[in-house]
């Protein structure tokens, strides 16, 4: 009895959605979550529904499957082509999940990327902290630290194409030491997006959301004029200064005043190297997606 009451109450809450944005869908998805009663989660761990917006190109198919499997079961997938309103489908999927349906099975095999093999009776490891392949991944080895010369472990990973803080489609191969980006390489450029994703309002809302000012970003996307420009103080002066275009703060102020950003596309690897991760993410969002796309095409 009580359990059923809990199910009914859970079904009335806003659906927790992780969204994978394909070509030509960025502005539509952002508008949807600014208006609709649904929560856009920042990682699949908190979501129950995978919203696939647009046609995902073949090169991103494995990434999509990986994200699908990273949503803890029970889970469901909803496809959206941008024509009708997906809310009815999202709510129906949410109601099914909350009623206790088992959802979709995994798409990828339940195998580690490499066999977990090493020294020891059970193949448990190597020598000391080095060597061994725990969970199918080798241990990180030391590399030169560009900041203070300490030899720390270098961690190489590919982020994207559906990282919620990066332009959809962008894949970066980063070598991190702690939170410091030691080297960066553009593997794939962002998906093409129509002009509405580059509108000053949309760009400002994206950057504000990243700075933790979600309600302000929603108001901007719903068409309310910004009440004040105080939000630009969340960005330090001089971050991302690039030639004639000014720094990130200048670009955000311009967007809030309704002016499109100007200036040449940045050199992405040089822009990111030596930065901390949070700086890198703010920087990549301080240019319109189209400019980042040109920069990524040039750097690939």
């Amino acid at each position: 009895m009580a359990v059923r009451l809990f199910h009914r109450m859970a079904a009335r809450s806003a659906p927790a959605v992780f969204v994978c944005i394909g070509p030509r869908m960025q502005a539509l998805v952002e508008g949807l979550f600014a208006r609709a009663q649904s929560r856009r989660m920042e990682s699949p761990a908190g979501a129950a529904i995978l919203l696939v917006a647009g046609d995902i190109p073949r090169r991103a198919a494995v990434a999509l499957d990986r994200i699908h499997d990273q949503i803890p079961p029970p889970r469901e997938t909803v496809h959206w082509d941008g024509c009708d309103d997906p809310m009815t489908e999202l709510l129906a999927a949410w109601a099914r999940l909350m009623a206790g349906e088992s959802g979709e099975p995994d798409r990828l095999p339940d195998d580690p990327p490499n066999p977990w093999k090493g020294h020891g009776d059970h193949g448990q490891g190597g020598e000391g902290m080095m060597g061994g392949v725990p969970y199918g991944r080798p241990m990180a080895m030391t590399g030169e630290d560009p900041r203070d010369g300490l030899k720390l472990d270098a961690y190489t990973m590919r982020v994207g194409p559906f990282a919620p803080m990066l332009p959809p489609g962008l894949v970066l191969e980063l070598t991190l030491q702690g939170d410091l980006i030691a080297s960066a390489r553009v593997t794939e450029a962002p998906f093409p997006q129509p002009e509405d994703a580059n509108a000053p309002r949309a760009c400002a809302a994206r950057l504000l959301r990243l700075l933790g000012l979600g309600p302000q970003a929603d108001r901007l996307l719903r068409g309310t004029a910004p009440r004040s420009l105080n939000a630009v103080r969340a960005l330090p002066v001089g971050l991302g200064a690039a030639g004639t275009g000014g720094d990130a703060r200048t670009r955000l102020r311009g967007w809030l005043e309704g002016k499109p950003a100007e200036g040449p596309p940045p050199d992405i690897p040089r822009l990111l190297e030596g930065r901390e991760w949070h700086e890198a993410v703010v920087l990549l969002n301080s240019w319109p997606p189209d400019t980042i796309r040109q920069a990524a095409e040039a750097a690939r």
């Binding site: 991944r137 080798p138 894949v171």
Partner: peptide, 9 residues
């Protein structure tokens, strides 16, 4: 990692 993967543990 937004669909990406890591090389090391």
């Amino acid at each position: 990692f937004g669909g990406g993967s890591a090389e090391t543990h």
